[in-house]
């Protein structure tokens, strides 16, 4: 069994080669599902370090993207090793997408990776999605959180329409709505009736965890 504290720190330091070497060593040792779960958790804790550094201003968006890449590759490698015992239960379900009229997905994808690292089940419905797509997916999957992404200022109007559609479908009291992207602010959050806004994906994941705890 590898030293999970070292793995956690290497991921936090964005040491891609170091993380890969440890995972290769781990996989070569025919680990149990329980050990694999410990390694997954170490990766998740490493992402927390990344998030803290981002919030502290020592890491930048490029670092978050790089961390997401390292983590995604790590989880892919660990997935087959978990199949025997299954993974941990999801902490909650998030429906995530870029709202109608906006085709940008970089911020959405970073947030998705961080949510998955934190143990959420994420249903990514893609870009340029109509309000009805968020409503139907949230309803079908019993989501606790609906996360709306958008880079362009036109996304604010689409976010508002999406929240109105959730209300019309009787879902507004059943889900928390988080908004993220270049144009969001405390003012726009209040204006459109969302529960939370952020331009910081790491901080948003922390907030998401409070909704399902």
């Amino acid at each position: 069994m590898i030293d999970t504290a070292v793995l956690k720190q290497k991921l936090g330091d964005l040491d891609e080669d170091g993380v890969q070497a440890l995972l290769d060593e781990f996989a070569a040792g025919t680990p149990s599902a329980e050990e694999t779960q410990q390694v997954v958790e170490a990766c998740q804790q490493g992402m927390e370090i990344v998030g803290e550094n981002f919030e502290a201003g020592t890491y930048f968006v490029g670092d978050l993207m790089y961390a997401a890449q390292i983590l995604t590759a790590a989880l892919e490698q660990l997935k087959p090793l978990m199949s025997a015992g299954g993974g941990q239960a999801a902490k909650g379900t998030v429906v995530l997408g870029t709202v109608a009229g906006d085709i940008h997905d970089i911020g959405k994808n970073i947030f998705k990776a961080l949510l998955e690292a934190a143990g959420f089940s994420v249903i990514d419905i893609g870009i340029d999605q109509a309000p009805s797509a968020f409503v139907e997916t949230a309803k079908t999957n019993g989501a606790e959180i609906v996360a709306l992404s958008g880079v362009l200022t036109l996304s604010i109007a689409s976010m508002k329409e999406t929240i109105e559609a959730l209300a019309a479908a009787g879902l507004r009291d059943k889900v928390k709505v988080m908004i993220g992207g270049n144009a969001v602010s405390a003012e726009t959050c209040e204006f459109i009736g969302a529960d939370y806004w952020s331009k910081n994906a790491a901080a948003a994941v922390k907030q998401g965890l409070t909704y399902v705890s």
């Binding site: 109608a100 009229g101 997905d105 362009l152």
Partner: peptide, 13 residues
């Protein structure tokens, strides 16, 4: 450069 559902031209990744 592609058109979104609302008709606006946008630059995807």
């Amino acid at each position: 450069w592609v058109m979104s559902s609302t008709g606006a031209m946008q630059h995807p990744e």
